[in-house]
């Protein structure tokens, strides 16, 4: 039951988050002080999210083959591979390493 509540709450919250900017602001521009902080939100969250996903609770999910896969994806992306291809490079790298390491 609490799962359904969580799903509904996140859906409703996301609707509000996506809608409130266009609805409230309209044609006006943002105050300058807020844009600096808002601009930091995305990179901070993304970095924390990746860490949480890769390490897991008590770092129990830590897996060197995942780090190698992420490194491969980043390398491919920096070499101007499209995003999807870079992700595939990461997935394949991790799969091959796991195969090789048994």
């Amino acid at each position: 039951m609490s799962l359904w509540i969580a799903i509904a709450a996140v859906a409703a919250g996301s609707f509000l988050i996506k809608g409130i900017g266009p609805a409230a602001l309209g044609e006006r521009e943002l105050p300058k002080w807020s844009t600096g902080i808002l601009a930091l939100l995305a990179p901070t969250l993304l970095a924390a999210l990746v860490v949480v996903e890769v390490l897991g609770r008590r770092w129990a999910d830590f897996d060197a083959t995942v780090l190698a896969g992420l490194a491969a994806a980043v390398a491919a992306y920096l070499l101007r591979a499209p995003m999807l291809l870079a992700v595939v490079a990461g997935v394949v790298t991790t799969a091959l390493l796991r195969l090789a390491l048994g």
Partner: peptide, 22 residues
């Protein structure tokens, strides 16, 4: 906390929506 974490993640759509508004 799970709902809050998910919504914080989607908080990035707030500045996106503000940028998109005009």
């Amino acid at each position: 906390p799970a709902i809050a974490a998910a919504l914080l993640i989607n908080g990035r759509f707030l500045p996106m929506g503000l940028a998109l508004g005009p």
